[in-house]
Design a protein around this nucleic acid. Structure first.
Lengths: 328, 328
DNA sequence: CTTTTTTGTGCATACGATTACATTTATATA
DNA sequence: TATATAAATGTAATCGTATGCACAAAAAAG
C-alpha cells in the first residue's frame, strides 16, 4: 500500500512514463525494459490507483444500474446478465433501487451523477423519463431495459411483449375456449400496455368480442394478482381460462385459487407471462411465455458498452428479443 | 461539464481554496463570501468532480457487496437493506455476483480491489474466507452477512439460526409428533450447520432419538429440496412432519409434494426457515421461521460505516438478530 | 494605543497516474 | 560516411480537488 509508479520507476531505473507505458501495454517499450519493470511491479507489490488513472482518462469502468426493486427475480436475472457481461470487460456496476418511484429514481440519479460513471442502465420505474436527460446532458450513455418511457427516446432492450401475449392467448383460444379472463398491469408501463395489446389483438384476430368485465388491471405485484383473481372468481360466471401478464400477479392469483380450491366451480387454467423460478410449479398454470431474461441483461450491457466505446450505431437502437411459449 | 473550481473561483473573485472550503462547509468562510461562491456555483452549474476529490481524500464513498446469487430474494432483501442504509449516508454500492463459488469470489475481489472501495460486505459463498484477507491487508473494512467463514474472523451480522431452528422443531414436537423428517443444507455453510444443531438440540432436549434415515442433506436449492423430499416420501414409513432449513429447498419440496399429492399416504406438514415471498402460500407449510432480512442488511451497513469512520469498537463485532416464529 | 488573538483568504503543493513533446540511441538509406 | 528514419525513453505538464502554512485584517485584550 502506498507504492506508486514513482517507486516502481526508481526501483527499475526508468521514468514514470515508461512504467505507465508498460502498464498500459504500449508496444514501443523494449522487451528488456518491460521485463525489468514488470519484475519491480511484482516485487514491490505495486497496484495501480484507478482513482488517479480515472482523473486523467475520464473513465471509471463503472456503470450504474437503476432498477425498481431488488428482491425481484425478474429484474435480478436481468442484473445478473448485465453483471456477467460487464465483468468480462472489466467493468463493475453500481446498483440502485428506485423503489418503483420516479421520485426515488431522481435521487439515485443524483447519487450516480456524482460518481462519474461511464454509462447507465435503467429499468424505468414509471413511464416518466424526462429526468434521464440529465445523463444525456453529461454525455453519459443510457440504455433502458425491459420497459420504455413516454418522453425519453433511448437505446433499449426489451422483449416482444405483443407477440408473446398474443401467442399465449392464441393457444388458449385454440384449446377451444372463447371466454378468457385477463389480469394485466398498470397501463402506464409499456410492458403492461404491450401485453394488453397482444391480448386484444389475438381476441380480435379470432373474432372474439372482448368482455370488459373479464379484464382486470392490477399493478404487477403479488397482492394485486390475488385481488384480481378474486374478482374474476366472484363473477356470476367466472372464466375458466385466465391470462395473467406477469409473474408476481401469477403468484398472487395462484395463491387465491389455492386457498379457495374447494369452492371453485370448475377447474381453472392459467396462461402467464414469465417463466421463472416457480412459475412452473404453480398448480394452475399450463402455458408460460418465457422471456430470455439473462439475454436482456447481456444485450443491454453489450449495447451500453458499444456506446461507451463510441461505436458508430444509428440512434436509437431498439432491440426486441423473442419470447418463447412453454406448454406444461 | 468542464466547469471546475477554478472557473468558480475566477468568477467569484476568490481563490480555489476558498471555493473548496465553501463546498466542504468550512466554517471559517464569511457569510458574504460563501454566498457569492454559492451563487457562482449555481450560475455556472458547477458539479464537483468526485474522482479528483477521492484522489486527495482517499475516500470513494463506495462499498462493495459480494453475494452468491443475484436472483435470490433472500440475498436481495439483505441487499435492499444495505442499499437503503448506505444511501442515507451518501454511499453507493458496487454489486458482485460470486455465483456461489469461492473461485469467482476471488475474481470479484480482484475487481473490487482495483476500485478503491471504502469497505466491503460479503455474503460468503463457502466456508473459505482466506481470500478476504486481501481486504484486510489494504486496510479495507469487511463485514460478513448471513454466514460466517471458518478461517476468517470478521465483523458479522447474522441471525440466531440455532434457536430459530430449535423453536420450529420444538413447536412440531409440541404438536405431538416425534418422527420428524429433516431437509438441511450443506454443512460447510455455517447457516446450515447452525440450523442442524438447532434441530438436533431440540430433539435431544425432548429426548427423541435421532433417526438418521430421516436426515437429508441438500444444497439450499430448489432441485435438492425436491430430491430430498422425494427420498423422504419414498421411505417405507415416511415422516408426516418435515423441517426444512431454507426457503428454496422448501419450494422444491413443496413442488414434489404438490406433484404427487394424490399418492401421499398421509397429510404432510412442513416447518421451514425463511418467511419470504411465497413461503406462506406453499400449501404444506404451517410453521415459518422468519428472519429480519432487511435488518440484516441495514445492520450490516451500519456496522461497516462505523468501521469506515474509524469508530472505536471491539473486534470482532458479531451481531446476532433474533428470528421469529409464525404459525399459519 | 500597542499587543495578542481570532477570523478569513490566498499560495503553493500534493494526490498518482497519463501523455504530448522532446530527446537520445539504434537502424536504414543515400 | 553522412543523413534520414524509426525505436525507446525521459521531461514535465496536466487532470480537479484539498489543505498546511503564511499572511493580512479585524477584533479582543492589555
Amino acid at each position: 500500500m502506498g507504492v506508486t509508479v514513482k517507486d516502481v520507476a526508481r526501483s527499475a531505473g526508468v521514468s514514470t512514463a515508461t512504467v505507465s507505458r508498460v502498464i498500459n501495454g504500449d508496444s514501443r517499450i523494449s522487451g528488456e525494459t518491460r521485463k525489468r519493470v514488470l519484475q519491480c511491479i511484482a516485487e514491490l507489490g505495486y497496484k495501480i490507483n484507478n482513482i488517479a488513472r480515472s482523473l486523467k482518462t475520464n473513465k471509471t469502468y463503472t456503470v450504474g444500474f437503476i432498477c425498481p426493486e431488488l428482491p425481484n427475480s425478474f429484474f435480478m436475472n436481468i442484473a445478473k446478465g448485465v453483471e456477467d457481461e460487464l465483468k468480462k470487460h472489466g467493468y463493475s456496476m453500481i446498483i440502485c433501487n428506485s423503489n418503483e418511484s420516479a421520485e426515488q429514481e431522481r435521487e439515485r440519479i443524483d447519487l450516480l451523477l456524482e460518481k462519474c460513471i461511464d454509462g447507465v442502465i435503467i429499468i424505468p420505474a414509471s413511464d416518466e423519463g424526462m429526468h434521464y436527460n440529465r445523463f444525456k446532458e453529461m454525455n453519459i450513455p443510457v440504455v433502458l431495459a425491459d420497459r420504455l418511457t413516454e418522453d425519453f427516446v433511448s437505446d433499449s432492450v426489451l422483449v416482444d411483449n405483443v407477440n408473446g401475449a398474443y401467442s399465449a392467448v392464441e393457444h388458449l383460444i385454440n384449446n377451444g375456449e372463447r371466454r378468457i379472463g385477463y389480469i394485466g398491469g398498470d397501463l402506464r408501463l409499456t410492458t403492461a400496455r404491450e401485453r394488453d395489446e397482444g391480448f386484444r389483438r389475438a381476441m380480435r384476430d379470432y373474432c372474439i368480442p372482448i368482455d370488459e368485465s373479464l379484464m382486470k388491471y392490477g399493478d404487477f405485484h403479488i397482492d394485486s394478482g390475488y385481488e384480481k383473481m378474486k374478482e374474476l372468481m366472484e363473477l356470476d360466471e367466472p372464466p375458466r381460462y385466465v391470462f395473467i401478464s406477469n409473474y408476481f400477479m401469477h403468484i398472487g392469483a395462484t395463491k387465491f385459487l389455492f386457498e379457495k380450491r374447494e369452492q371453485l366451480k370448475s377447474h381453472i387454467t392459467i396462461a402467464s407471462f414469465d417463466d421463472i423460478d416457480l412459475s412452473s410449479i404453480l398448480g394452475f398454470c399450463r402455458i408460460l411465455v418465457g422471456q430470455p431474461v439473462m439475454d436482456i441483461g447481456s444485450k443491454t450491457a453489450q449495447l451500453l458498452l458499444s456506446r461507451i466505446n463510441g461505436e458508430e450505431l444509428s440512434f436509437p437502437q431498439i432491440i426486441r428479443l423473442k419470447t418463447h411459449l412453454t406448454i406444461l
